[in-house]
Write a protein that binds this DNA or RNA. Structure first.
Lengths: 149, 149
DNA sequence: ATGATACGTAATAATGGTGGTTACAAACAT
DNA sequence: ATGTTTGTAACCACCATTATTACGTATCAT
């Protein structure tokens, strides 16, 4: 895959944890459901933990569980916690030094990229993990995802 | 570079063309300013042309120029014209067939991705190519980019 | 007509990010 | 103590993207 799918995987992981909020699930169990590798799960969990969405317990009987209620976790939180790259990118090679347009372009595009990403985050903030879980459990109720307010 | 920088390059190209709206510029000239390859410029121009933003003229004295006024081209137009991949991605490997959450996840995430991208596009639609050019020429006037209405 | 210029595009190579995997250390329950 | 589970570094394989080459096509000047 081209860009990162960590956001998708992160939402998936959290939805699995939200099914049994009090219980610890091992990274092996979760990796089996998401068809990924336990280390990938643990890597993502490290980010989610740092953001205060999950907590881990080592040793037998341990694993991972949510540390907040599913309704208190928005997809914007997940996005920010696990994102590793920007949705829009500047070119690798810097512009020609002699071109005044090129010189200004970098700064202008960064502003635009920031605004665009913020708009995306605002949209993601409208959906909570609880909305996702409910939609997953009762898909027939509505074609659209429930949203906050 | 990880993901595509075509949007950034596309805006840059159009801004260069907007400097002299009536004149044809060659892909070599433009490639020199943007520090990329003439073929890359022509590839992008093909997309911009298809979207009705630019027109080309072969042969001596030919090249590329805008086919619309800079104020009639929004960054959302550019984004849609040159985009080759989505800002958010599903995982490569499908989820475990036995996991009901995984089965629903794909559909739910696609809805969420669509909404997020649409929000980003709405934000991009607020800036025109003319705004970008003015900001590039008079950077001191304001730190932020002028926006439509 | 002829030649020079410039776009159009297919094919290939080079680059670099991303996820998968292995390996091993650290922590914890029993 | 022992076995289980997370934490993390290191490395590998894969794949998307850009750069580059090559060649065809259209257009203009002469």
């Amino acid at each position: 895959m081209p860009a990162s799918c960590q956001f998708a995987t992160g939402v998936h992981l959290l939805a699995l944890l939200a099914q049994s909020p009090a219980a610890f699930r091992t990274s092996n169990e979760i990796a089996e459901s998401t068809m990924t590798h336990p280390v990938v799960v643990r890597r993502l969990m490290a980010s989610l933990q740092e953001a205060g969405m999950a907590e881990t317990q080592k040793g037998p009987g341990g694993g991972v569980r949510l540390s907040r209620l599913p309704r208190q976790i928005t997809l914007a939180d997940v996005y920010r916690a696990v994102k590793t790259s920007e949705p829009l990118h500047l070119p690798h090679t810097p512009p020609n030094k002699k071109c005044p347009i090129g010189q200004a372009m970098h700064r202008i595009l960064e502003d635009i990229f920031t605004g665009a990403e913020e708009a995306m985050i605002r949209e993601l903030a409208r959906t909570t993990l609880n909305d996702v879980l409910e939609n997953a459990m009762h898909p027939s109720s509505s074609a659209c995802i429930p949203r906050v307010t």
